[in-house]
């Protein structure tokens, strides 16, 4: 595997003509109608399937065949870069390239340059224990973007910053970035707590040790998860309550 990273390339059907889409053998190309279709879950699930890098190729702003699909994709990728950073991945492992047909760029070239960059980062999955930690983190990131809070915020981001919010005011990019970061931080930790307690009931302190988050904060997140009906107290052992995740469809 060394020196030969596993890469996935998502590309839209319009950025390059069919015949120009050629890629190195280690790179799987998946065509979608528009990169606006890329659900964050797809990207994170791909990382979870042990790819070392993901490149997303779409059309540059004025050329999107679906008007603004590319712009939404841009926000999604920005969000995902933050999420994978939280999960301990280098943000460079996810790359978005927006091209215009008139630029005359080479598809192969773009991909090869990305492969080179990933090579220099080295493999994402290095050894058994580390891998498990990364896989767990990616699962947590995936859970975090599955719940509605982040999805709503990133889905509305463009409208709020570019047009106006419900009160007719524009929200600054800084403000929305700060809010998204705050929410992401919370949802990521909550996801970890949720996933861990799905395996077996755990106490605040066990969770705290396992995920490296201060125990008072863990308890606060447990309170929030309980309020959302995602977690329940399983039993009390001695002086210590144990919590378990609830199955929700």
């Amino acid at each position: 595997m060394e020196g030969n990273p596993k890469i996935i390339c998502f590309t839209c059907s319009w950025a390059f003509p069919e015949w120009e889409i050629e890629a190195p053998p280690n790179t799987g190309v998946i065509q979608v109608k528009c990169i606006g279709r890329l659900d964050p879950i797809v990207i994170l699930e791909s990382f979870a399937k042990r790819v070392d890098g993901i490149i997303v190729i779409g059309c540059s702003p004025p050329d999107c065949h679906f008007i603004e699909g590319n712009l939404y994709a841009e926000r999604t990728i920005n969000l995902l870069k933050k999420v994978i950073t939280l999960a301990g991945l280098e943000p460079e492992r996810l790359h978005l390239e927006l091209v215009s047909p008139i630029e005359n760029k080479s598809f192969l070239n773009l991909v090869e340059r990305f492969v080179e960059r990933i090579k220099s980062l080295g493999p994402l999955f290095k050894g058994k224990e580390v891998d498990e930690e990364i896989l767990f983190n990616i699962q947590a990131a995936k859970q975090a973007v599955t719940w509605s809070r982040l999805r709503i915020l990133s889905g509305r981001e463009r409208k709020l910053t570019e047009k106006a919010n419900a009160y007719g005011e524009k929200i600054s990019q800084e403000e929305i970035d700060r809010l998204i970061e705050e929410v992401m931080g919370e949802e990521y930790i909550r996801s970890k707590i949720y996933l861990l307690t799905k395996e077996k009931p755990m106490s605040v302190e066990e969770i705290s040790k396992r995920i490296g988050v201060d125990s008072p904060l863990v308890l606060q997140h447990i309170v929030a998860l309980r309020r959302r009906g995602l977690l329940a107290m399983d039993r009390i052992e001695g002086y210590t309550p144990l919590y378990r995740a609830l199955e929700v469809d």
Binding site: S203, V204, E205, S208, S215, P216, V218, L219, I222, V223, R226, M233, I236, Y239, T240, P241
Partner: peptide
């Protein structure tokens, strides 16, 4: 309330003695 009526320590969620 936040802890569902079981007295817990905010620091570690253990029941105080």
């Amino acid at each position: 309330g936040p802890y569902g009526g079981i007295v817990l320590r905010p620091s570690d969620g253990r029941i105080p003695r």
